[in-house]
Design a protein around this nucleic acid. Structure first.
Length: 466
RNA sequence: GGAGAGGUCGCAUAGUGGCCUAGUGCGCUUGCUUGGAAAGCAAGUAUGUCCGCAAGGGCAUCGCGGGUUCAAAUCCCGCCCUCUCCGCCA
């Protein structure tokens, strides 16, 4: 139910329609109110940490493209804290009186007075919570020290391999796809509209070969395989940070009826897998990989990548997702990037690692390393995979914790850290293979590591397998 | 799509306005006992937040949110979720 919808036009519209259907404006207000108070309980950020490290946090957030008024946030916190304390004191008194009064079994003037005082203060607290929440929800994760600022821009951390040299006029993947009869964009558009395509013949086999190659690879690294649902509830979208920020990217199914959302990445159901759980420390880090079809509206990207299948509404992806202890997450981050490197080294595709600057970092990310692979027809490196450490940002919203083992006297639960990393964006990898492995005669060789999975070594014009 | 049932501590259950500061059983932890184990016995067994050096204490949470009341797990309203049966179906 419109949980993350506060201040979101699209969502308000949905609510309004529903309210109209039932012909009640009152319903509309009730609906909105329930909306917020439900999630308002989530502590989206560590306000005490922020309070104690204000300067540091300010400095880190300055790397970002958005400005944050931390002073205001702290003031709003002070206000709700104060009101909460006053109400709690009154309640303590009320509870005491109720206990004393049970024998008397009758109302006293003092009890009524306290009751009324509380009733008067409660709306104030509710609005203070709401104001605080509205401010807090806009906060981004705090970028790591190693993240370049917006001004510095993305930083290339490493380059591997060299772009291939061709002694003939190269073709783009859409050209190759059409001539080899393995990618059918025209009919994709006919059936589903722009940014849809059919894979056909060897491209289909190549897709499954890539997937199988990766399953083998990840199985050796003790990841737990998951086939997640691709339709999720709003809580999952909110918890992973896609709502409210990237709402326009998400397909909604039967608005107002089912209000389900199609995932743009398996990250969403993988992250939400442990929602509201306290994990056993001994099991951490918990590493998963999930295969899913991903659906994205690509709203506002009209001019970009209009040709080919680099940017489409639907594609398949294998995503790695890790729940870790806070002090291990950066080590795991490096391990994940290492896997990205290994994969492209084995596929023998030239790539570079890019440390994404604060200017482009998503709200949940503390750091992000993209792996960009050389795309010959564009004569540039393009993003194929993306590894992020979201630290406790998602864990807070999804309420995923663990209890530290050395059960000292007062073992408090802590939020886990979450990391997500594309293991394989199947469509874009096919693009990279087609273009980098193309031959003068218009055929395409298959990377050695994949040949045992495809069963053929070459895709050629007649559709003959070599 | 039609008809019903239900959501209480990790699990299972009790609880229909104040003896609930949520009982009991199981599980788990620790201790006693033992050559060791089992059994037995004893104690403990949630989360959040606030105050406090700590010990400890306040408040909230019985699916969620409102309402009634001096007092709500319990009564009223709305919502969410789960399950069962019938129908349809890969």
């Amino acid at each position: 139910m419109g949980k993350a919808g506060k201040g979101d036009e699209q969502n308000l519209e949905v609510i309004y329609i529903e309210a109209g259907d039932r012909g009640s404006l009152l319903f509309f207000y009730l609906f909105c109110f329930c909306n917020q108070s439900d999630i308002i309980k989530i502590e989206m950020l560590d306000i005490n940490y922020l309070r104690e490290n204000l300067k540091e946090v300010e400095k880190a957030l300055a790397k970002k493209h958005t400005k944050f008024d931390l002073e205001k946030l702290l003031k709003l916190d002070d206000k709700r804290r104060d009101l909460r304390q006053r109400i709690e004191d009154l309640r303590a008194l009320q509870n005491k009186l109720a206990k004393e009064g049970k024998s008397a079994s009758r109302r006293t003037e003092k009890a009524v007075e306290i009751k009324n005082k509380i009733k008067k203060l409660e709306p104030d607290l509710a609005s203070a919570e709401t104001t605080y929440f509205d401010q807090a929800i806009k906060m981004h994760n705090i970028p790591d020290k190693s993240v370049p600022s917006k001004e510095q821009g993305n930083r290339i951390e490493k380059t591997w391999g060299k772009p291939p040299k061709f002694n003939f006029d190269i073709k783009s993947h859409e050209q190759l796809g059409k001539e080899l009869d393995i990618i059918d964009i025209e009919r994709g558009v006919k059936v589903s509209g722009t940014r849809f395509a059919y894979l056909k013949n060897e491209a289909v086999l190549l897709e499954f070969a890539l997937v199988n190659y990766l399953i083998d690879k990840l199985s050796k690294k003790s990841f737990i395989p998951l086939m997640p649902p691709i339709l999720v509830k709003e809580e999952a979208m909110f918890g992973t940070g896609f709502f409210p920020a990237d709402r326009s990217e998400i397909y909604e199914v039967n608005p107002g009826e089912d209000s389900m959302y199609l995932i743009g990445t398996a990250e969403v159901p993988l992250a939400a897998y442990h929602t509201n759980e306290i994990l056993d420390e001994k099991e951490l880090p918990k590493k998963y990989w999930g295969f899913s079809t991903c659906l994205r509206r690509e709203a506002g990207s009209y001019g970009q990548d209009t040709k080919g299948i680099i940017r489409v509404h639907q594609f398949d992806k294998i995503e790695m997702f890790v729940f870790s202890k806070p002090d291990e997450s950066w080590k795991i981050f490096d391990e994940l990037v290492k896997i990205n490197e290994e994969i492209f080294q084995e596929l023998e595709l030239p790539f570079r690692l890019v440390n994404i600057s604060g200017g482009e970092l998503g709200a949940p990310n503390a750091k992000k390393i993209d792996t960009e692979v050389w795309i010959p027809s564009q004569a540039q490196y393009r993003e194929l995979t993306s590894c992020s450490n979201d630290t406790d940002f998602q864990a807070r919203r999804l309420n995923i914790k663990y209890k530290p083992q050395p059960s000292n006297l007062n073992p408090q639960t802590l939020y886990v850290h979450t990391l997500n990393d594309t293991a394989l964006a199947v469509g874009r990898t096919i693009v990279a293979i087609l273009e980098n492995y193309q031959q003068k005669d218009g055929s395409v060789l298959i990377p050695k590591v994949l040949q045992k999975y495809t069963g053929f070594k070459k895709i050629s014009k007649q559709g003959q397998k070599a």
